[in-house]
């Protein structure tokens, strides 16, 4: 018999909430008990993702292009070794990018909510100190305290695409995308144009389209922002930009319907 039976969230707590073990969906919501320590020592001193600051200046934002290129090369090689066909390689790259996109949407939007003048601006995470006093440890590196108003959620197709074309592109590639075009033929089709894609600039064109990684990022962002869509990359060599890539975003019909209703 399975050990994890999902109990109804009963009023009788099955176990004493003496030391928090985190949320357990099989038990349901747990009460904060009167004598529970607000923050146990063990959990604060451990290195944890919660002790890191989310602020952009907490880390060096500059990454060596060579390191970036070698990492991407390894990613492609790994996908290539694990796949049997070209489309499978592209699918794997796409999937890798997708998970990145989900995270970028939240992170970059959250970061742009932080106003540059807030008091925490020049104080990136103080997590490295060994002894953290229980309650004050995390209050200081909390960015949310400095936020007066969160950035608007993007509700329209154009808004979210501009977010990708501007914020995401400059975070990933250090510059904004070259163009954002709406298709004249189809209502649900948009194109993000990059004249010299940074990730694949050292990769000679082959039958494998490595820009599918970026497609995955775009699709991850749009999907988790509830704009279900399909993104593909097409390389369109031009005279001056022989590595030009066009990312075609095709939204599902429900997105158009919703926008027509709400506008």
């Amino acid at each position: 018999m399975s050990q994890k039976i999902i109990n109804p969230s009963t009023s009788v707590a099955p176990a004493k909430h003496s030391d928090s073990t985190g949320y357990d969906y099989t038990i349901g919501p747990q009460q904060t008990l009167p004598n529970a320590p607000s923050l146990s020592k063990a959990t604060t001193s451990l290195p944890s993702v919660y002790n890191e600051s989310l602020h952009a200046s907490a880390r060096n934002p500059q990454v060596s292009l060579a390191a970036y290129a070698f990492l991407f090369q390894e990613l492609v090689t790994q996908a290539r070794n694990a796949s049997k066909s070209v489309s499978e390689i592209e699918l794997r790259l796409h999937r890798n990018g997708y998970h990145l996109g989900i995270r970028l949407l939240e992170l970059l939007n959250f970061r742009s909510s932080v106003s540059p003048g807030s008091k925490n601006f020049f104080k990136p995470g103080n997590s490295s100190q060994g002894v953290n006093v229980a309650s004050s440890a995390f209050q200081e590196d909390s960015l949310a305290q400095g936020i007066a108003n969160m950035k608007r959620r993007d509700l329209r197709m154009v808004e979210i695409l501009q977010f990708i074309h501007g914020t995401v592109w400059s975070y990933l590639f250090g510059r904004v995308g070259d163009d954002l075009v709406k298709s004249s033929e189809r209502e649900n089709e948009f194109m993000i144009i990059d004249n010299s894609p940074l990730l694949t600039r050292f990769i000679s064109s082959t039958n494998v389209q490595c820009d599918f990684f970026v497609c995955g990022i775009i699709e991850g962002i749009l999907d988790s922002a509830s704009f279900p869509c399909n993104v593909t990359a097409h390389s369109v060599p031009e005279q001056n930009f022989d590595q030009k890539v066009v990312f075609v975003v095709r939204f599902e019909p429900q997105v158009l319907e919703r926008e027509a209703l709400r506008s």
């Binding site: 290129a69 991407f72 492609v76 090689t77 290539r80 050292f202 990769i203 000679s204 064109s205």
Partner: peptide, 22 residues
């Protein structure tokens, strides 16, 4: 740049990279 950072190049093998040529 254009040979060693190309995931489709096998080390020690003949170089066939358009971008390197160019």
């Amino acid at each position: 740049d254009y040979v060693m950072k190309n995931p489709f190049y096998e080390p020690e093998m003949p170089i066939r990279c358009e971008l390197f040529d160019k």
